[in-house]
Structure formats: C-alpha cells, structure tokens
Design a protein around this nucleic acid. Structure first.
Lengths: 128, 128
DNA sequence: AATGATCTACGAATGATTTCGTAATGCAAT
DNA sequence: ATTGCATTACGAAATCATTCGTAGATCATT
C-alpha cells in the first residue's frame, strides 16, 4: 500500500471531484458542462485543472480513446474527512462539538436525520 | 442596517481574528506575539494583514494613540456560521447531516459533549 | 537635540491558484 | 484528401494571499 501524503484539493479541484463523485468517470466536456450549469468557466480551464489533478493523483485518466476519461482517485468520504479536520482546526479551533452544534442549529435538519445522529451518538457512547 | 456582503477571511486573517476574539482589542505587537507562540511570523507581516483587514471591515482600528488598537468587527459565532455554510457547500454539497456524522465519528468527543449535542437535538425535535 | 527603540505606511517579491489563448493533433463527413 | 470540429497540450497572464524590507514618523531617554 502506497503512502502518498494527502494533497488538499483546491476549490476548483473540489468542484471537479464533486462532479466525478456524483456521476462517475467522465470526459472533460461533461465535467465542464456540469460546472457551467453553476458558473461560467472555459473549457480549457477545466481541462487544465483536471490535468493538474492527474499530477496530484487526485484523479486517474484513461487515455485509450481520443477523449480522455477521468475518474476520481480519492474517495468522497476520505476527502471530506480530511478537509473537515483541516477546517475544524482553522475555523473552530478543533472543537468538533462547537462545529456540530452550529451545523445543527443553523440548518434545516429533518426528523429522520436528527434521529440518525442521535443513534450515532448513542453508538459512540456505548463504545467506550 | 448595512448590507455588506460576507468577505470570507483568509487563513492568515482568521488566525488574527482568533487572537482578537480571545483577548479583545489589541495592538499589532500583542497579536504578533500571540501568533509567534505558535509559528514564526514577522511583525510587519502581521501589521500588513491587519491593515488589509481594516479595508475589508473585518476589524476596526483606533488610531488615537501612536500604537493603534485593533478590534474584531465580526463576531466569532457569525463568522463561524458563514464559514461553515461555505464549507458545507464546497465540501459536503450542503448536507449538514453528513458533516455532523463525519465530525462525530472521526473525533474524540467527550461524554459531556455528546450529551450536550443530544440535548440540542432534542430541543430541535421539540421545536417543530 | 541626539540616539535608539518602536511603530506605521508602502511597495514589491514570492508562491499558489485560476484562467484562458494558441497551437497541434485526431476524427468525421463530405 | 480537404474541411471543419472537438480534443489535448502547453505556456503564460491574471489574480490572490502571504511575506517582508525599507523608509519615515513618533516617542522616550539621555
């Protein structure tokens, strides 16, 4: 198993990863179209970022066909976990609790979701 | 009431805000000393960032005395809330629940804290 | 008032990210 | 094969954040 260190994706890279996570292996054209549904961004810009991501091992690229197909090489959960860790430190001074309480307090959260979280808490409580 | 749009503080700015939030109105010297307890950073670097923050209305500055006194002009809770919102969108596609579950799952959280969160959840549940 | 210490102001170097223009290549349809 | 279109590759400009050097002002001490 390799031991590459976690390269924090930039904002532009994260946008692209989200398309790949949501839709699976995709061409640059497809990713660019998805991004343009949200904001204007040039085709070659998207291409360039995706090429950089290959260099960072954030994505894999299949170059068999003329149109290259890109695939996420980092999992959504793992990436989120590491981004979260970083975010916790810089914005919340490491207090997961304050973050959680802020997240729950400020956002519409369904009854089901709340139940799921309570469930998780109870699991953690019983783990010790 | 004014309607300035939220200027996301940069990492360096956030470090400084955290000193101001923790200690109240402070001189550049004091803030710089606090930061240097954690990492090496030049005095004029800190000064420059704090001057930029005045331009962004992140801090207020009292220039009566020769040594200017800076004070946070954004609250910790409000700033965290907005950073969180932004982070939710970019990293978690807006799902507060997934973020919360990740935060609780991956971090040491004390029994007391878990209880506090459960408490909050019950309050939210009863609110509807 | 001269010296030294401390402070602010300013500008500019550095480095990272984002952006896109241009050129070259491959494919498809005539 | 030629034309036209979509794609990749490359490089460089534009932007942004971070860093600090230098100069000039203010203050305290002698």
């Amino acid at each position: 198993m390799s031991h590459k260190k976690f390269q924090k994706p930039t904002d532009a890279e994260l946008e692209i990863l989200q398309v790949l996570w949501a839709h699976g292996p995709s061409s640059v054209r497809f990713v660019n179209d998805q991004l343009n549904a949200i904001r204007k961004i040039g085709y070659t810009t998207t291409l360039k970022v995706m090429q950089i991501m290959v260099g960072k091992d954030l994505v894999n690229r299949n170059t068999d066909a003329r149109t290259h197909i890109y695939e996420a090489n980092v999992s959504e959960a793992e990436t989120q976990s590491k981004l979260l860790e970083n975010f916790l430190d810089t914005a919340f001074r490491g207090s997961a609790t304050r973050l959680v309480m802020q997240a729950l307090g400020n956002h519409q959260t369904s009854r089901q979701e709340l139940a799921a979280i309570k469930n998780l808490i109870e699991k953690i409580e019983n783990q010790e």
